[in-house]
Design a protein around this nucleic acid. Sequence first.
DNA 1: ATTAGCACTGTCAACCATTGAGTGCCAAAA
DNA 2: TTTTGGCACTCAATGGTTGACAGTGCTAAT
Lengths: 337, 337
Amino acid sequence: MSQPRRAEILRAIVEDYVHSREPVGSKALVERHQLGVSSATVRNDMAALEEDGLIVAPHTSSGRIPTDKGYRTFVDQIASVRPLSSPQKRAIQSFLDGADDLDDAMERTVRLLAQLTHQVAVIQYPAASGTTLRHVELVDVGGTSLLVVFIPTSGRVLQRIVEVSRALPEHELMELRARVLASVMGRPLQDVPAGASNLVRQLPPELAEAGTVVAEALASLAASSEDHRLVMAGTANLARFSGDFALSIGPVLEALEEQVVMLRLLSEMQQDVRGVAVRIGSDSTDDPLAETSVVATGYGPESVSKLGVVGPTRMDYPSTMAAVRAVARYLSHTLGE
Amino acid sequence: MSQPRRAEILRAIVEDYVHSREPVGSKALVERHQLGVSSATVRNDMAALEEDGLIVAPHTSSGRIPTDKGYRTFVDQIASVRPLSSPQKRAIQSFLDGADDLDDAMERTVRLLAQLTHQVAVIQYPAASGTTLRHVELVDVGGTSLLVVFIPTSGRVLQRIVEVSRALPEHELMELRARVLASVMGRPLQDVPAGASNLVRQLPPELAEAGTVVAEALASLAASSEDHRLVMAGTANLARFSGDFALSIGPVLEALEEQVVMLRLLSEMQQDVRGVAVRIGSDSTDDPLAETSVVATGYGPESVSKLGVVGPTRMDYPSTMAAVRAVARYLSHTLGE
DNA sequence: ATTAGCACTGTCAACCATTGAGTGCCAAAA
DNA sequence: TTTTGGCACTCAATGGTTGACAGTGCTAAT
């Protein structure tokens, strides 16, 4: 009962099940794959695999399907992620090159990924942790409204409109602007609130009120640029396989809308040597995502921001991993410019 | 065979079917409602209603369910939208008051609406048509990057980073800024591209290149602030009733993600005297939304922006209409400040 | 115009028997 | 010790039959 053959059989079971979505039996296996053994031998090996908890039989007598653990070892067996075909590569490139905006790039990327993998794709906006504040601008937008523009190095631009009780004359605004710049520009984001409140203490009386509201806005913006937004696409793909498995798509959609869950999940995933992280089934957590797998990877500077796809545990891992990695690379490249 | 009684019976059928999701028969009707007649009489009336195409029997012999046309006349019969209970009103108010941002307000509104109606809620960003350009700002964000901030009166702030081939010294930037402001500020959005290209022709040579890219950015921003974004929430609610009816949620999700379809739909809906518009079933279009209804209304200045919910034709129209209208009113009020 | 009564129709669930794919195990072969 | 052929067994899926049931349409009486 050789070990390599057992691994081979596991691989065959996973592949067949993924594309037929039906329990696979010993006889069908020996027919579809060129294992040089008979069905009885395969049966023995299958019994051993079941013993190890890698596959299960849904009913006493029908084919086997892989368990989460089975998928896990299958995925771990994959030595290298096969690269995409060059037409696919070119499609990615041309699709991503059209973006003229960070928002647009995110949108395009997530749609592309959903289309490539036929799954739900998610992407996290470039993270601000470790980034600094590149620029702040105060703009008088008429009356007592003041626009605070907030530009971290991550590329995303945030803004907020604040109200002051009296309109500031031009020179006061310039003065305030200069002081704000001096106190927070170039600082790491987490230092911004401190710098801002420090600023308030040194302001002349006529700027005190405006300075306070601006400082509050800066602190709030710094905080909100930390809670990375999430964009997703391809939710319709969830419906496609709601038929096969009893995967009830309601809870999954809820979890996806509840972005906090996904954000935590993504940040916890550790990508391995092959450049992708794969979370299969619940992996010891019994949330609404128990019957789903997540394939994710980092992108951008230091790969600290994440993108990936969510789908049923029964998914085509090799292709999905390849697509996720390729898209992340191209996106990193595009953003790098 | 009195006409008012027939209307009453239609109303009863719709109400019963909406909350039991099962075909309703003559006997059950006379039991649950105090119509002063026997089941045989009701049967006669039902035959007439079926003749008019307002209800159908799924099988030769089972209760009747309303047709799209039946829902239509039911909805048209509703004289006035019943107001919400005051706890509900208070909940809306407090939930919406917390918003500190346009993005945040949209997000909160759409979630609130999804929760109130248990349906998918959609909201269109405040439309830019008819709005003017309140302010433009050029900001040097280091090196050869220039940030163009674009603030229409609609409240949303857009921005874009453009690249120039050589860094502009401070005074040149100020000069360019002044010229840009003079040529496009206060203009209606559709005039912005013309104003910008006009500007380019009058620039001194050293500003020509930077002016051109800025003008392009302005034109593009003006255009993209026209293509109103759509936000939605509560897609998980789709799953809840995917069981009852054969409403396949896949196509619906696709249509929702394809925002163009929804945007056109929303813009085509004409709200009536009661302040809401109701589109039931396909209403002569056989798209993926054929089995859904849309309840929508306008909000904001001149009610030109739209919000609403989409759900199965079998929905509780009175409550939904009430919720949609109430949320729209509160949002208009919140934005008005 | 309404009602009571009755025959008719179709759905649904329950209940078989049958089929078939696939297993587990054992004894024989390699 | 591993592999193989054979055989009995199990269980899901299928299909036909049946009886209850809900509801209708029609007719005759009020």
